[in-house]
């Protein structure tokens, strides 16, 4: 073993040898500090802690729970048994079918409404502000209050609000939520009412951002109102519309509050959704293994949808 002498740490260089070089790692740290890395970290730390504690750790814990059978006191690893039990549950297909049906109905019923409303409001000159407020009003209702309100509107007897109104024109009474075929569309109508305000305001903002020169040029070319709508408005909005559609699909796949409060999943499980099934596993059966397994399966599906969303937004933003 040999020892080497090093120049005194005065910082002075001599012609006899190269100056002492800091190691690559130390240099990187110094550079990082000089470029404000420490202050970035300090500012970033609370965010990291919050996300870590309340978002990432629960996700990691769910992953672990899905592979365990636990009573929260002792746990044992069961491999993929929870997933097998979920996939063997006949209610899974029912819930998946109902959730998909809700998503499709929400797209068919709920998607065009805010587009049409936004176009109409954009045409208003004086009452645009008040119309925007009125359209957004349902969004500020607490969700459970709104759902309970609609539940009473849907009262199945002749004295129910909707049945009374329809009775004036000789229709009904309808069973609404008590009818297996009508229950899900009825829930979709409520959900659309509760959420269309936000989408309308976003579409309205997009419409307001369309250059008026485009409309003027179209008018000069002799385009009528429908032609302008078809050839100017919709093409200018298509990027936002597609993104909104994808966000709606992701959101509606996680529907819970409306069917839980309005029907409890009935009648005959016709409105039982995937999130309600997860809730039943966890809080009715006390089986967190199955609940987290199904949650992860749902998260996988939503992750695919989110990937599509990311891909589409990037594609549209660069085109």
């Amino acid at each position: 073993m040999t020892t080497t002498t090093t120049p005194p740490a005065t910082g002075a260089t001599t012609a006899t040898g190269p100056p002492p070089q800091p190691s690559r790692r130390t240099g990187a740290v110094v550079r990082w500090l000089r470029h404000g890395g420490l202050s970035t970290l300090v500012f970033f730390l609370p965010l990291l802690l919050c996300f870590g504690l309340f978002s990432w750790w629960p996700i990691a814990r769910s992953l672990l729970l899905s592979l365990q059978q636990t009573n929260f006191l002792t746990s044992r690893w069961v491999g993929l048994a929870n997933f097998e039990r979920v996939l063997a549950d006949p209610l899974l297909l029912t819930a998946l079918g109902n959730t998909t049906w809700f998503t499709v109905l929400a797209l068919v019923i709920g998607f065009p409404v805010p587009v049409v409303l936004a176009v109409l409001i954009a045409e208003l000159r004086r009452a645009r502000a008040i119309a925007s407020v009125l359209v957004y009003l349902p969004v500020v209702f607490p969700p459970v209050v709104a759902v309970l309100l609609w539940k009473t509107f849907y009262a199945p007897g002749a004295e129910g609000l909707f049945n009374t109104v329809l009775g004036w024109v000789g229709l009904g009474p309808f069973a609404w939520l008590n009818d297996g075929d009508m229950a899900m569309p009825a829930i979709v109508v409520q959900a659309t009412w509760a959420t269309f305000g936000t989408a309308t305001i976003i579409y309205l903002a997009t419409l307001m951002g369309i250059q008026t020169e485009l409309y003027e040029a179209a008018e000069t070319d002799g385009a009528g109102i429908w032609s302008r709508l078809w050839n100017v408005t919709l093409p200018q909005m298509r990027g936002v519309m597609l993104v909104m559609a994808l966000l709606q699909v992701i959101g509606t796949f996680q529907v819970f509050t409306e069917p839980y409060v309005m029907t409890g999943g009935g009648p005959e499980n016709r409105t039982l959704t995937l999130l309600m099934l997860i809730y039943r596993y966890a809080f009715v059966a006390g089986d967190y293994g199955r609940a987290t397994a199904l949650s992860l399966l749902l998260a996988l599906v939503l992750a695919v949808l989110s990937a599509v969303y990311l891909w589409v937004t990037r594609r549209w933003s660069t085109s």
Partner: peptide, 20 residues
């Protein structure tokens, strides 16, 4: 055994008889 799951299974049965 699993009384709550049993009750949950019977809810739709009662609903079916009363709605159809």
């Amino acid at each position: 055994v699993k009384a709550q799951e049993l009750y949950a299974t019977l809810d739709p049965v009662v609903q079916a008889v009363l709605t159809r």
